[in-house]
Computed example of a mutant assay.
Amino acid sequence: MNRTMLVPSAKARRTREASILALLGVLIVVIFIVSMNTGFMRLSPLDVLHTLLGEGTQQQKLILFDFRLPRIVISLLIGAGFAVSGSILQGLSRNALAEPSTLGINAGAGFAVLIFISFVPATTAAPIFVLPLLALAGAALTATLIYFLSYRRADGLSPTRLILIGIAVGAGIYAFQLILSLRLDPQNYQFVAIWLAGKIWGGDWRFVLALLPWILTLLPFAFYKARVLNVLNLGDETSKGLGLPLERERLLLAAAVALAGACVSVSGGIGFVGLIAPHLARRLVGPRHQIMLPAAALIGALLLLTADTIGRWILQPTEIPTGIVVAIIGAPYFLYLLAKSKA
């Protein structure tokens, strides 16, 4: 009887999960369409349709294909990348507050990119494709430093110590960023200030091509390792008892760092996406990473695209950096989670 009751339950769960993923996909399509119609230069839905069919004016084609669509695609890629990176970090550390920005990984990646763009303006294709590599180097060095400062032979990797050291290291790196920015000329300083606020500054197809290989490689790898994250959530001792090679599988950290670094290279200091998306995904589909990771990726993409659309619309003709819009949403949620964890 119990076996008969379990089958419909599993089927109902899978149906519910598929429905949630489909709903998230539909919402992304809706915001995608809204975003194509949002900006200082107004394009009606009919204008967008005509332009997509090749019947628009040269100005409409320029606005849609050269400015809006690349930025929309970049928003989707960055949102998915940050969300999956945060999901991996939370799974590895077993800490609900872990994500690239709170662990200082975004700060390390941003510092490496900041040094580069401060002295070598990214005006050609070559520097643009180098930026993700520089961000990866900065993120990797920061993550390595945080890992070694957090690890103790007696009790291993403490989730609480990991978060506290990550916040401290991130704060130190942000201080160095401010010092560096004060030495810049006014034009570069203005650019760096906007970049640090989280403006999606990579607004053409070259940045899409620079970011796309990282996302297309690392997201499937993370999905493939979903079962490993499920086991790691059970704790180190249980994982060892199940025969999981802990140190080798913790190399998943490299995938999380690479995702965050690549995203920071074109998005600036956007935080909280890697914190909010995994939590919402768990509430919607449960903790199984096989379904939670894709759900988090969709939620992250939806969140960042929505934030970018709001930022371009709310104070036209100027725009609010996407990172500020996300922070308005994410900061209260972070405080809520922090208070809840102390309880």
Rank of each mutant, 00 (worst) to 15 (best):
D155I: 12
F176W: 15
A171I: 07
L134G: 05
I117L: 10
T144E: 15
L131N: 00
L180V: 06
L157I: 09
P127Y: 03
I117F: 02
A135M: 03
R183S: 15
L131Q: 00
G170C: 04
L134F: 08
V120C: 10
D185K: 10
R161F: 11
I173G: 03
P186G: 00
I163D: 12
F119I: 05
S150T: 01
G170A: 10
L133S: 02
L182G: 07
P186S: 02
F148K: 05
I165D: 06
T123S: 10
S118L: 14
L162A: 13
I179S: 12
A154S: 14
A171P: 02
A140F: 14
S181P: 11
G138F: 00
Y189T: 12
P121G: 07
V130Q: 10
I146S: 03
A171M: 05
Y147L: 06
R153I: 05
P132W: 01
I167C: 02
L134S: 03
R153V: 07
A154H: 06
L162C: 09
P186E: 08
P159S: 03
D155K: 14
L141H: 07
I115A: 08
G170E: 06
F119A: 10
R161M: 09
D185H: 09
P186K: 02
V130M: 14
L149I: 09
Y174G: 09
Y147T: 01
L184M: 11
L131E: 00
F129V: 07
L134D: 01
S181L: 11
F119N: 06
G138W: 00
T123G: 14
L178V: 14
T123W: 00
T142L: 06
L149C: 10
Q187W: 10
S150Y: 00
L136K: 11
P121N: 03
Q177N: 11
L184W: 07
A154Q: 07
A171L: 11
Q187Y: 13
S118D: 04
L133G: 02
L136H: 08
R161T: 14
L180R: 06
L141N: 06
P132R: 01
A140G: 14
L149M: 14
A139E: 08
F176C: 08
G172L: 12
Y151G: 04
L131K: 01
A154D: 06
L178W: 15
L164W: 02
P132T: 00
L157G: 13
I173N: 02
F176P: 04
T144H: 14
N188C: 12
L182N: 15
I163P: 05
I146W: 08
P127S: 07
Y189L: 12
